[in-house]
Design a protein around this nucleic acid. Structure first.
Lengths: 170, 170
DNA sequence: GGTCGTTGGTACGAATTCGAAGCAAACGAG
DNA sequence: CTCGTTTGCTTCGAATTCGTACCAACGACC
């Protein structure tokens, strides 16, 4: 283990700014969404992801992994969305244990109705202070980080069991 | 109001990457902190902020605003930290209704013990994929955004009352 | 074709989170 | 000085969140 894997002031500053900015954005967006469509941020993210998909559907696990959420939490949210008629849940044909979540027309409508306001808040908060170059730099760097994080380490859902000592053998 | 304040693909990508990266970092860090010191992320942030302060103390409200947390949530967390002896709470001398939260020696010790591991995770996740220039660009841009967000709009704690119709007069 | 380990999802309980309501101290105008 | 307003914090109830335990379906292997 490294004795002092300390961060430069620059790195520390970047990290703190990242957390602070994302918290503030989240907070603001959350209020806007709640007020405009009575959706939590996760719910909106789920709808957005489904709307983005060509098929308009996804497996539960992929959704949970995508929005970085616990599986049980996703079950809860999916139930809520289903009760409101914004999504449908049905077992997959390929894999009997998979549940396929599909965006309904109502869901798509809500998404379409909510998106502009959401975007507006984000633009005002995030991009009004930035130049074109800033935005490109930001996107580039964060994209690289995302790829890095999604590649190597444990995914959103940690491996099911956690054996005491070192070697978990296949 | 703008008819379509839509975001470029570039902007949208940057926004999504920001949310995704921050979520992943938060998630990873949270697990590490829980495991290493049985601290939630907020708790750690609070300790860190107090440790950063020259006086080692802050008002409740300033802490809540700093970490972007509800006031009631902060009360809860502060109680928890106080029970564990990591902070002290005492009414302020200047202002009888303010509570001053102060880091104890134990708290400082826990912070010192926990910091390296925390930093290590952040470095591995966030900075191992980045060049020096990347880090500087990231910090610069995000710093600018933070200043922008902290400046203009509603702070973490929304104004107390929200009158029905238009004119709230001073 | 049976068995073991893995994966996808759900129920349950415990802990957290937030907003609204409430209370007391401080401030400002008259 | 006194009243109305604002600010700082806590309590309360309701909703969310997560981890863990659990069940069912899949897959590999013998």
């Amino acid at each position: 283990m490294a004795a002092s894997p300390s961060l430069d002031p620059t790195e520390l500053g970047a990290y703190l700014a990242l957390i602070e900015v994302s918290s503030l954005v989240r907070h603001a967006v959350e209020q806007q969404l709640r007020e405009a469509a009575d959706l939590s941020y996760v719910q909106f993210q789920l709808l957005a992801r489904l709307g983005d998909s060509p098929s308009g559907c996804h497996r539960m696990t992929d959704l949970a992994d995508g929005v970085v959420y616990s599986r049980s939490g996703l079950t809860y949210q999916a139930q809520l969305l289903e009760q409101r008629g914004l999504v449908t849940r049905a077992p997959s044909r390929d894999d009997e244990r998979s549940i396929t979540v599909t965006l309904t027309d109502d869901g798509r409508a809500v998404l379409a109705r909510t998106f502009p306001g959401h975007i507006e808040v984000v633009r005002r908060l995030l991009f009004d202070a930035l130049t074109r170059d800033d935005v490109e730099a930001l996107g580039g760097v964060l994209g690289r980080v995302r790829d890095h994080m999604r590649a190597t380490p444990p995914r959103s859902a940690a491996p099911r069991r956690r054996r005491g000592s070192g070697s978990d053998s296949p």
